[in-house]
């Protein structure tokens, strides 16, 4: 029971043979070697495993790798280009929006989606958008500030 999938991850095409039951998060970390997306709750609550699939922020612990066959996946590793941070990454840096940093890759991928869809979000809209991402350091205020700062700069 294996299947070959071909997908594009951070702009690079690759093909692998996987069991249908392999979750996208396990595929990204263990097969593709991308350990930026994190595994925490594994019950689709915490958002640490958030990546974009065909431009949509999704929780990669709740999607099978075979569902991503033929699709475009963007992980935190795909954001910085030529050694230059993505504006959202830079805003997280500037606003001290991380403490332990565990939730940060998921937070940034969700934050990017919020601003892509709504370039000037209100604080309420930012908080509503981040509901699916948990920060156990509870550093939400600085995370919200970072999303605001990134939106203001864009």
């Amino acid at each position: 029971m294996t299947q070959t999938i071909t997908l594009t991850i951070n702009g690079k095409k690759r093909s692998d043979t996987v069991e249908p039951r392999m979750l996208l998060i396990h595929y990204l970390r263990e097969v593709a070697g991308l350990t930026g997306p994190h595994i925490a709750c594994e019950t689709s609550l915490c958002g640490a495993c958030t990546v974009h699939v065909d431009g949509k922020a999704i929780k990669s612990c709740s999607m099978f790798a075979v569902q991503a066959d033929g699709r475009n996946v963007l992980t935190i590793e795909g954001l910085a280009a030529d050694g230059k941070l993505d504006p959202m990454q830079e805003a997280f840096w500037n606003e001290h929006a991380l403490q332990c940093g565990f939730c940060t890759p998921g937070m940034i991928m969700t934050a990017k989606q919020i601003v892509e869809r709504n370039p000037k979000p209100t604080e309420e809209e930012i908080r509503h958008g981040l509901e699916g991402n948990l920060c156990r350091c509870t550093g939400y205020q600085h995370i919200v500030n970072a999303v605001k700062a990134a939106a203001a700069k864009a």
């Binding site: 949509k56 922020a57 929780k59 699916g132």
Partner: peptide, 9 residues
């Protein structure tokens, strides 16, 4: 419903 990522899927 759920959260942003859940509403996407």
């Amino acid at each position: 419903i759920g959260d942003l990522q859940v509403r996407n899927m």
